[in-house]
Amino acid sequence: MRQLQQLLRDPKRLFPIVIGSFAGFLVLASLLFPQSAGIERSSSEILRWVAVVAAFALLVGVINVIGQHLGRLRSGDKRWPYSVVLLIGFILPPGIALYGYFAENATDVATVGLFQDVVQWVYTPLSISLLALLTFFAVNAAIRALGSGNREAVVVVVVAALVLFAQIPALIGVPFLGDTMAWVQNYFALAGLRGLAFGAAIGAIVASVRILLGLDHPYLDR
């Protein structure tokens, strides 16, 4: 009650919370009553506004990143080459977009051939390389976990090893193995996953409601 009274006396906090709560409940209502055109239209409009506001948040983030790396260049940090690569990465997409607009009259940067080349030859191979690294990291983590004797980690490693082992081609003809694996996955694993999903959903509902009611406001820089 005391918190509520403090909130009512502080319009700088109250106003954003009321706007946030109203917008949140409107979007929630549009999910519960999809047949109501008025609510649906209002909700879509709010979500469009969110995209615009988020674009400004992204701008602040971009300024923060550029500031960090310019600072690193100015201070003569030994990691300056990485900052140069990052800054080139920042300049390249808008540069290509401008080139596409003026040279090819393209309004969507994703359709510009040069941008597609950068994605195909730079972004995609880098992403795949990072994913490939995961394999080695997983093996390293598994070996260390077995050595450390952490009970939960040992269970994870042993189950993963058993599942991998059961899938090798030489074991395909072994009677009951495939059916047993399918049964374990369809009942034990799925039951566990659904339990996890239920628990997480309940937590998400309670967390969302308290943010909608303004009891928690991690978004508010008061």
Binding site: A204, S208, I211, D216
Partner: peptide
């Protein structure tokens, strides 16, 4: 919602 939980 996980991000919200992480932020809180």
């Amino acid at each position: 919602p996980e991000s919200l939980a992480g932020l809180v």
